[in-house]
C-alpha cells in the first residue's frame, strides 16, 4: 500500500496527539476546567442571559459548563477515531487513484476533514464566550460543518473512484 503525502499523515498524527492530551486534561484537570468555565460565563453574563437570580443563574451556568465539557469530551473521542479513518482512506487514495489531480483533491479534502475534531474545541470555548446556543451555532457554522463536509466529500470521492474502477468500460 502506498502512503499518502506527509502533510496528511502529519495532520492525522497531530489530531491523535491532541485527542490523547484532551483525554488526560479532561480527567486530571476537571476542577480547574470547571472553575475556568464558570469564570468565563460570569464574565460574559449578558451573552448567557444571566438574570442575577441565583436559582435561575445556577441552572444556566450548569448547562453551559456541561456543554463546554461535552465539547472537550467530543474532541477526545473524535480526535482518537477520525485520524485513523483519514490514514486508511488517504492510503487507499494514494494506492488506487491513478489520476494525480484527483488524488491531490481527495488528499486535500481528507486532510482538511481530519481537523474536524478541532471544531469541538471551538464549540467548548465559543459556548463560554458567546452563550450556549450562539456558541454551538458558531462552531457548527464556522468549523464543524465545513470540515465535516470536506471529510464526507473526500470519502464519497474515493467511493466514486472505487466504483468507477469496478465498472468495466462499456
Amino acid at each position: 500500500m502506498r502512503r499518502p503525502p506527509i502533510t496528511v499523515v502529519f495532520l492525522a498524527v497531530l489530531m491523535l496527539a491532541l485527542g490523547e492530551t484532551a483525554g488526560a486534561v479532561m480527567s486530571q484537570l476537571r476542577p480547574a476546567i470547571e472553575r475556568y468555565a464558570r469564570a468565563r460565563i460570569l464574565a460574559n453574563a449578558p451573552a448567557h442571559g444571566l438574570s442575577g437570580s441565583a436559582e435561575y443563574d445556577d441552572e444556566v451556568i450548569s448547562r453551559a459548563v456541561f456543554t463546554a465539557e461535552a465539547g472537550l469530551s467530543f474532541l477526545h473521542t473524535h480526535a482518537q477515531a477520525l485520524p485513523v479513518v483519514t490514514l486508511l482512506a488517504s492510503t487507499l487514495v494514494a494506492t488506487v487513484v491513478p489520476w494525480r489531480r484527483t488524488r491531490g483533491a481527495l488528499h486535500l479534502l481528507l486532510g482538511a476533514g481530519t481537523l474536524f475534531p478541532l471544531g469541538y474545541l471551538v464549540y467548548g470555548l465559543a459556548v463560554l464566550e458567546a452563550g450556549r446556543d450562539a456558541g454551538v451555532a458558531l462552531a457548527e457554522g464556522l468549523v464543524l460543518t465545513p470540515l465535516g463536509s470536506a471529510m464526507i466529500l473526500g470519502l464519497l470521492g474515493l467511493a466514486a473512484v472505487l466504483l468507477r474502477r469496478r465498472t468495466p468500460a462499456a
Binding site: 506527509i6 502529519f10 498524527v13 496527539a17 490523547e20 492530551t21 483525554g23 488526560a24
Partner: peptide, 27 residues
C-alpha cells in the same frame, strides 16, 4: 496505570508529531 502508561502514550504521540513536523519543515 493511567498516569504512567497514559503519559507514555502521550509523550510518544507528541514525539512522533514533532518528528513529522521537522520532516515537513526540512522538505
Amino acid at each position: 496505570v493511567w498516569i504512567p502508561f497514559g503519559s507514555a502514550a502521550i509523550v510518544a504521540m507528541w514525539l512522533l508529531t514533532g518528528a513529522l513536523a521537522l520532516k515537513l519543515v526540512q522538505r
